[in-house]
Design a protein around this nucleic acid. Sequence first.
DNA 1: TATAGATAGTTAATCGTTTACCGTTAACCA
DNA 2: TGGTTAACGGTAAACGATTAACTATCTATA
Lengths: 331, 331
Amino acid sequence: MRVTIRDIAKRLDLSTATVSKVLSGRESAFISEATRQKVLETAREMGYRPNRVARALVTGKTDIISLWAQTLAPYHSEVVNLLMDQMRPHGFELIITDMVKHPDWRAYCEKFPQWQVDGIIALDSPECVRVFRQANPHVHMPVVSMGAYYVEEGDFVGIDLYSGAVEAVQHLLQAGVKRPAYLVCNYGNHVGDPRYDGYTFAVRQAGLEPLYIVAEHSSRPCARERMHQYLDEHPCPDGLFCFNDEMAIGAYRALCERGIRVPDDVAIVGCDGIMDTEYLERPLSTVVQPVGEMCRLAWEFLHRRIENPSVAPQQVLLKAHLVVRDSSRRG
Amino acid sequence: MRVTIRDIAKRLDLSTATVSKVLSGRESAFISEATRQKVLETAREMGYRPNRVARALVTGKTDIISLWAQTLAPYHSEVVNLLMDQMRPHGFELIITDMVKHPDWRAYCEKFPQWQVDGIIALDSPECVRVFRQANPHVHMPVVSMGAYYVEEGDFVGIDLYSGAVEAVQHLLQAGVKRPAYLVCNYGNHVGDPRYDGYTFAVRQAGLEPLYIVAEHSSRPCARERMHQYLDEHPCPDGLFCFNDEMAIGAYRALCERGIRVPDDVAIVGCDGIMDTEYLERPLSTVVQPVGEMCRLAWEFLHRRIENPSVAPQQVLLKAHLVVRDSSRRG
DNA sequence: TATAGATAGTTAATCGTTTACCGTTAACCA
DNA sequence: TGGTTAACGGTAAACGATTAACTATCTATA
């Protein structure tokens, strides 16, 4: 059976309070060095493992952070890794919740407070946060939103993909592209997608008509398939700006399969700056998100709010910058 | 403040027991339909959210599974996604613990029982499991090991990469490679790495000397850098079998950068079968692990042991098969 | 000598559930 | 009418920690 502080207390003829004070390592308590050592030793001998569930029940802290994301794509993995690096030194664990995978994510968000996590990091999940907040007006769980969608309330670390998108389109035009298309997925009708707005603005500004190619999901296979399908029915656009790198890579593959040359026939620019883009035979131009800085700030905000729930919410918007590589470099 | 069953009970002038019986949805209890409805309604009205921590303390179940992994590479993301798909319908959450990221993973494994998870899935982490078991002989936490390293004790879903490696080397030789090298990382001196053994065997069988190129980590940047460094000092091998696809892609990139042609100058075969391999301009040959089947079985084993801790441990070894693509196809 | 303060340790309530066990009621039957 | 039983609901003890408040002892100081 599990060894508890009571067992240790009994063995040493002490009270559980004393044992707890030693084991939870609070310096303030008055415990003699002799008892301290005895308790520590006995705990080790008996193979005592604190029960974090019991502790959490009384302290109200679980040392667990929940990450809300939309399918664990490579971009998300990088975020996960970076966040973990930040949190670990502070003793927090990360529990990943993939909202897309939930058959009923709305209900899940509404009932989320049942998991007593110490905080939530919502990556590109503004809708989830909204549902969560609305259903739990009296719950004060620290939440920081991060990602490319603008969030009005609470702590927020955003990426300004709007100007990144504009930059990307202008770059394509300068490279001689006559009509850049936007390859996008159909989440939420593009509402709140700054890339969409940026693309549309930049294209219109150049006196051109926008051309949207819409795929079901933002995944590689989906983009690849959609691209094939599109090219079966339409002439090939000479430039492609993509919702994310996943889709860019999917499209790139489809073009390869059709013998269409990149960048000569089609110049491609992606979004996110995932590591994969650098490792293609023809590295992919992309609007790089400052993920490191973003994760650093997200954790900083969350950690601060955990320590002091009443601090004023903070919002930052980080710049994303176009990195030009071979996939859109001509001449 | 948080709404508890006590609040509901007080409001309805019932006992907490009754409320609990309704809310925890056990059918066996005798509760009239009228009270049931009243409780349900009041709970909804008051915005009641069960406290899983409190529940876990008494039931001993948290509905949380811990995944132990080594840095969240693309291969791991796929595993994570697949496992989640399995577990979600059963109401389990996944908490990912990246052992490599822990400054002191040994201590962490030893103290792991403090997290009252319902089970552990250890992906390519045989050493962690060993440390965990040894430090906690009396703890009966369900563990299933999965991955390419053979584990003798407990439930285990393995991949036979040995024969996969042999197959890969033989394929390279048939494609006309004179001296295939093995690009590997230096975890644990290759002990227990079936690819290493398979490679070595196959090369020796062909009357050749093995050639190992050892990088620090199994990551892309690391493999790329190591490859450059190697080629600065040595002639280029004409074939490359790699520890995993990450390293293969890293090496591939290094070769591209040096103007060395794949597969004409060097034929490459990777390991794992991650999605990225399909999306290169020249898709990568790779020894594909049956990840789907592996995850399905891992969850099946774990779930069974959670329900019935005394079932006999089960061990399976799945075959991995070489998929030949452009990176090693000649002529 | 009286008093205050520092030190060491104890008592018991508490966190929010679950659940084994018990009591009451009412229907049913012989 | 007395007894059996099923249905419904309550009591209270867990689960394993933390912690406020308290007691007891010792030391130092006036």
